[in-house]
Write a protein that binds this DNA or RNA. Structure first.
Length: 834
RNA sequence: GCGAGAGUGGCGGAACUGGUAGACGCACCGGACUUAGAAUCCGGCGGCUUGUCCGUGGGGGUUCAACUCCCCCCUCUCGCACCA
């Protein structure tokens, strides 16, 4: 009988569906395990990256089930978003139709791959039954001041016709379409993620060990905490102050000029009456418009103009000219920087260019006395404070503390912490998203929608403008509404939420996906959360993972999620899988180097596609798709198929690891039994400990290879048949998480009634692992000189004697004194001679 | 510049807390079967000067023993970056 993957895969997929094999609910008798992959965006069809991601997760889910865990393994759709709109415009259809059609198609693709999802928990974020809870969260967030409106310059993508969060601007370009992002003054809704900055930073420690080091580093980096001080500089002929943020308050005596951002709010006031208004305004306007980055990502040359006014250094009493400079960011710190050329490289370059004074105030102990005239770059190291009045002589680290004390005592400033992290702009001027449940009333102002009016449904009968503009602001049927407070005529918010909002809590909804009374039951969420293993691409290292971490904390503090230990972080363990490449570069439609999973399934079947994705490389690493590689996986599947067919009926249908030592009478039977148990050990360790699926599969291949070599001899007697039957069953059981369909088919074919979905992971016996004969490696002075066979666990003296008598060893120690003999039990002898 | 990671056969990759470098697979070569091929089964497959010699990016070091630990350097990938 030839291996026909399609018929048998179809058969077992139906079987699992009819038997609800992967549905789960809360149980107290077994430990829970929540295995989750990042849910897909319904873009059209599944690509190889999805297959790899979900194949990895499916191994984990199956393995944990076999280990006795109550496993939650759900799937759903990240269904709102801009690409659906763009595609719908292109195809002359509606985003909703486009999205739901894609979901139908992709669902059928996932089902063909036979993943062990609990399909009864499937969700789509564009479903009002999903996003209504999100609207409820935001009412609560608004009540608590976590959601607020702010007018500020925003990142604006002219091509997508919408604002972007800071996280969505990559090197000045839109993360989606690569258009140059502009700054536009807008009033938008924000989530106060900065309120959680410290907790988000601190809790990264809880994730150490469970998350990849580099993802933790990226988040830490992104949040960018800086500890320093704010210092107020008085402006000459004015009662105003210029506050600056610095991490180097110890260098304040070296501040010889002041630089402010072109967009600084006090710029006009500072320049007024100096006669330099025109020049400064022109410069500021030019810089504000330009992209801060050169096309190659390099920083632009430092540039600035003098405003004509001075401020006073409160420490040195010196007059400091105030400059507008292109390198000062308006959005970080106070938008003003004290210029300390001797100890800051940017200030140094600026001072050199415009001949501003350079004063050394910190002298590192190991360097020759610094001379401003001779310096070619700033000296940023710590050292002894000099030219710093009463602070001279202190170490600069202590100086930081003393200066900060002084600032606070004299009212000149205060200790201060700055974050790179900005509040999260969640407003999007697009149609295909969750309506923001807010209303504008002429009398009452901004009024949150009433809870009982939720969900605010996104109308499905509107068409998106060809340029991507939202139809909502032109749809009275949507925006006209009574004021929730006074009942008068009011206008509904027509912006929608950033789609990252939906993906920030979907994993919580999976715990109770059809609840119509609440976003989720508190007991259910307490049972299932946190996600034990989260699996997805590293491209979400900052955006999604940071937002989701924030969201779960915000939900906790808003009373939606119980305050329990273990509920502060959504994802206890994170695996970032590598990309699937083709000919060395990322598969993409534009490059024309894609491999369609459906075509591969048509050709080889789902088991082969899954097996190859798992065998080609360890999960975290990128791998290059090779057509010859998948042929190899197919060959192996056929190999075990033929072996099982040959042995079916000839060997007993006994369980994995069921053959006894008595069955293994012959040396080959003993060798096979030992290999069988060793494979159980190796595969289990590789899967559970390190997600080394490639080596787990390799070990089963070795077992199968050995069975081929010994089967004819073992079929000669009953004991040998039992060892063969047991080993075959072990191979099938161990492969089940990787290639479930063929394994169930073979299990049935061998006459074993209990489905593999209900079986446990085999247990090996320590005793069975030991080989009788051991190869001892013989070394002389660390070099391999020979090998001898010895019974396992032989007496040390006997092994040493045998080693020294070995002719190869003899040859190499001739005429030398044997100084030492190192013995590693059952492994090697190293004779040290000289 | 800061942070993270990686350099091992023709290729993907093994080698767990230092102990036979190259498991397993791909490609290639040979044998068996076959009229022939495909498929399958069995075997070979780092290099050369064929020595139990040399080999894990390069150079030092620790050790009886180093892909593995320490120091220095080189190359590559990814993330962040005028953040005061």
């Amino acid at each position: 009988m030839k291996y026909n993957p399609h018929a048998l895969e179809d058969k077992w997929q139906k079987f699992w569906e009819q038997n609800h094999s992967f549905q789960c609910r809360e149980e107290s008798s077994r430990p829970k395990y929540y295995c989750l992959e990042m849910f897909p965006y319904p873009s059209g069809k599944i690509h190889m990256g999805h297959v790899r991601n979900y194949a990895i997760a499916d191994v984990v889910a199956h393995f944990k089930r076999m280990q006795g865990f109550n496993v939650l393994h759900p799937i759903g759709w990240d269904a709102f978003g801009l690409p659906a709109e763009n595609a719908a415009i292109q195809h002359g259809t509606h985003p909703a139709k486009w999205t739901y059609d894609n979901i139908d198609h992709m669902r059928s693709q996932l089902k063909r791959l036979g993943f062990s999802y609990d399909w009864s928990r499937e969700i789509a974020t564009c479903d009002p039954e999903y996003y209504r809870w999100e609207q409820l969260f935001f009412l609560k967030f608004h009540e608590r001041g976590l959601l607020f409106r702010k007018q500020a310059p925003q990142n604006w993508c002219p091509r997508c016709n919408t604002v972007l969060a800071n996280e969505q601007v990559v090197e000045g370009l839109c993360w989606r379409c690569d258009a140059v992002v502009e700054q536009k003054e807008l009033t938008q809704w924000f989530l106060r993620i900065t309120d959680y900055a410290q907790e988000l930073l601190d809790d990264l420690e809880k994730l150490e060990g469970g998350w990849p080091e580099r993802v933790i580093a990226m988040q830490r980096n992104w949040m960018g905490k800086s500890v320093g001080a704010e210092i107020r500089f008085g402006i000459e002929r004015s009662d105003k102050f210029l506050p600056v943020f610095t991490t180097r308050q110890d260098t304040v005596f070296g501040a010889t000029f002041m630089s402010i951002a072109p967009a600084h709010p006090l710029l006009d006031e500072i320049t007024a009456g100096t006669g330099r208004e025109a020049e400064v305004a022109e410069f500021a306007a030019r810089i504000r418009k330009s992209d801060p980055k050169e096309p190659d990502g390099e920083a632009q040359e430092k540039e600035g103009v003098f405003t004509g006014r001075h401020c006073i250094n409160p420490f040195s009493g010196e007059r400091m000219p105030i400059w507008v400079a292109n390198f000062v960011l308006s959005g970080y710190g106070t938008g003003a920087v004290m210029g300390v050329p001797a100890h800051d490289q940017r200030d140094f370059e600026f001072a050199k260019k415009y001949s501003l004074p350079i004063r050394v105030v910190v002298q590192p102990a190991h360097l020759a006395p610094l001379d401003p005239v001779l310096m070619t770059q700033a000296e940023t190291e710590a050292g002894l404070m000099v030219n710093s009045g009463e602070f001279s002589g202190l170490h600069s680290e202590e100086g930081k503390v003393r200066i900060a004390d002084f600032l606070e005592a004299e009212g000149l400033g205060k200790r201060s912490v700055n974050w790179r992290l900005r509040d999260w702009n969640v407003s999007r001027q697009r149609y295909w998203g969750t309506p923001i449940p807010m209303v504008y009333c002429e009398k009452c102002g901004v009024v949150p929608e009433k809870e009982e009016n939720l969900p605010i449904r996104l109308p499905r009968d509107l068409a998106v403008h060809p340029d991507g503009r939202s139809p909502l602001p032109e749809s009275p049927a949507f925006y006209e509404c009574p004021c929730p407070k006074c009942g008068g005529k009011a206008r509904r918010e027509t912006d929608t939420f950033d789609t990252f909002v939906e993906s920030s809590w979907y994993f919580a909804r999976y715990t109770d996906p059809v609840n119509a009374e609440a976003p989720f039951d508190k007991e259910k969420i307490a049972y299932w959360m946190p996600v034990d293993q989260y699996i997805g691409g590293v491209e979400h290292a900052i955006l999604h993972l940071l937002y989701a971490r924030f969201f779960i904390k915000a939900l906790r503090d808003s009373g939606f999620i119980p305050k329990l230990s273990g509920m502060d972080e959504p994802f206890a363990n994170l695996l970032t899988q590598g990309m699937v490449l083709k000919s060395g570069s990322k598969m993409s439609k534009s490059k024309g180097n894609t491999v369609d999973p459906s075509e591969m399934i048509d050709k080889y079947g789902a088991d082969t596609v899954r097996l190859f994705c798992l065998f080609a490389a360890p999960p975290e690493r990128d791998f290059d798709w090779a057509d010859s590689g998948i042929e190899g996986a197919y060959r192996f599947i056929n190999r075990i198929w033929r072996l099982a067919l040959e042995l079916a009926g000839k060997v007993p249908a006994i369980d994995a690891c069921a053959a006894s030592p008595a069955d293994a009478a012959s040396p080959k039977a003993r060798a096979l039994r030992q290999k069988e148990h060793a494979t159980v050990k190796k595969a289990g360790e590789d899967i559970s400990g390190r997600f080394q699926f490639n080596t787990a599969i390799a070990s089963v291949m070795e077992l199968v290879n050995l069975m081929y070599l010994v089967k004819d001899e073992l079929l000669a007697d009953e004991g040998g048949k039992r060892v063969l039957g047991s080993s075959l069953f072990t191979a099938i059981t161990l492969l089940f998480p990787f290639t479930p369909h063929i394994c169930e088919e073979l299990r049935e074919l061998l006459g074993s009634p209990l489905p593999l979905t209900e079986r446990v992971w085999p247990v090996y016996s320590e005793k069975a692992l030991g080989a009788e004969k051991i190869t001892i490696v013989l070394q002389v002075n660390g070099k391999l000189r020979g090998k001898i066979e010895m019974p396992a666990d032989e007496d040390e003296e006997i092994v040493k004697r045998a080693a020294l008598d070995d002719p190869h060893v003899q040859k190499h120690i001739q005429g030398l004194d044997v100084r030492k003999v190192v013995y590693v039990r059952d492994k090697l002898i190293n004779v040290v001679a000289g």
